[in-house]
Amino acid sequence: MLKVSRRALLTTAAGAAAGCLVQSPAVLAQAAPLKLKFGNDLPATHSVNVRLREAVEAITAETKGQVEISLFPNNQLGSDSDMITQLRSGALELATMPGTVLSTLIPTASLTGVGFAFTSYDKVWAAMDGEVGGFIRRNIEKVGLFPFESVWDNGFRQITTSTKPITAPADLANFKIRVPVVPLWVAMFSAFGASPISVPLSEAYSALQTRIADGQENPLALIDSAKFYEVQKFCSLTNHSWDGFWLLSSGKIWKTIPQDVQKLLQTTFNAAARKQRNDIVQANADLQKSLEGKGLTFNKTDAELFQATLAKTSFYKDAKTKFGDEAWALLQRYAGNIS
């Protein structure tokens, strides 16, 4: 059992006070439990939150309640942009954040979300546990955030619609599709001639229900946990992009946490991330059948056709310019030639 001593917590509080962080929830003036808030944009039933709850319970047990982490799923603490701001200021201690959403602050964080770049999980995890992940991690640290080592899985993304199946690139012409507030994916769907509508995940269901958008794109796990099948009829297996979740701590707060607690948090959350990756693999094997039972009609697509169509536009050229030669070379080292 990890022992968080009164001296360690008092030292933490003193160090934080010296750094003008006395108002932060993580700063303790007494030998009281270390209380941390953890936010994300995912439904409570998503595998990320299931594994996070297990990890939080393990940390509480290991420290005999001396470290208390409160989990706030489903944008309870605000939009992704709000939580990024809170992390940087120290008002929020922990969060999981999709790389593509994080790219509004750190452009290279969306590198792995380039359309039709990765074709398998072998390539994804080789990149994220290797040089691509290290490159993005260093850029995250530059903006005052602490990124944990293991990236969580958001999965390969598919398109659902309420009007028609997407079988070929031409089906996306003038199609109103909800996408996250992610410039990379707005650019990709615009290149296909679609009409992308950027709204936060917490507003996506109502946007589909009220026909502000006729479709959306997300991994099967999120399509299921967000109950999009209630307002969509078709699911086209496009595998058009992969994205992961970074587990982040406020850099300001992280510096105030005792080193033994830092080590426990890293060990426990990184192990949970590995379990969650396996959850998604297993879920993907079962989810299509489950979602078919809930009313979605599935169809396969030709990824090479979509990639070739995208290559005829300026999308890849613009992406390479945006990310820079170093980042693009790293991506192609793992994903292969995608220009």
Rank of each mutant, 00 (worst) to 15 (best):
S314P: 05
P169I: 04
A58K: 14
L34V: 03
H240E: 08
I223Q: 06
R274W: 12
G336H: 05
A272P: 00
W328N: 03
S314Y: 06
R277M: 05
C20Q: 15
N337M: 11
E141T: 10
Q76T: 03
A55N: 06
F306K: 04
Q216W: 13
E149Q: 13
V67G: 01
Q216V: 13
K263P: 08
L264D: 05
R157S: 14
L92Q: 01
N218W: 10
A335V: 08
W246A: 02
E141L: 09
A109Q: 01
S150K: 12
Q259T: 14
K312N: 10
H46Q: 11
I84R: 10
T210N: 13
F148P: 05
P180S: 00
N49M: 01
S110N: 11
W125Y: 13
G193N: 07
I177G: 06
K64A: 15
P258D: 05
V261M: 03
S206Q: 15
Q307S: 15
T256K: 03
L21C: 14
Q262E: 09
I177H: 08
A31T: 07
P107H: 03
S89Y: 10
A285C: 06
T321C: 05
A127I: 07
W152S: 01
F315Y: 15
V182R: 10
S162M: 11
P196N: 07
G99T: 01
T45F: 08
G90H: 04
M1S: 14
Q30W: 12
S241W: 08
N74P: 06
A117T: 04
L220D: 03
G15P: 07
S47R: 09
T301H: 08
S110K: 09
A213G: 01
G65F: 04
F118Y: 11
A173I: 13
I338T: 06
F135V: 06
L220T: 00
A191R: 04
R277I: 12
L208R: 02
S110R: 09
T96I: 02
S162Y: 10
N74K: 13
A187E: 11
Y121L: 08
A308H: 11
N154C: 11
A26W: 11
S89Q: 13
V50I: 14
S5E: 02
S250Y: 00
L102F: 07
F175E: 02
T309N: 13
F72D: 02
A91N: 11
A311I: 09
A221V: 10
P73E: 02
T309M: 07
F306R: 04
F38D: 04
W242K: 02
G133D: 07
S198V: 05
A221Y: 10
S24V: 10
D171W: 02
W328I: 03
Q158V: 07
K3L: 12
T119S: 15
P200G: 01
L77G: 02
A204C: 09
L331G: 04
Q259D: 14
A29C: 12
F135N: 07
A221S: 15
F245C: 02
R7H: 12
Y229M: 03
S195I: 15
S24I: 08
T45C: 09
D279F: 02
K322W: 11
V56M: 05
S110E: 11
G130C: 07
G133M: 04
W328Q: 03
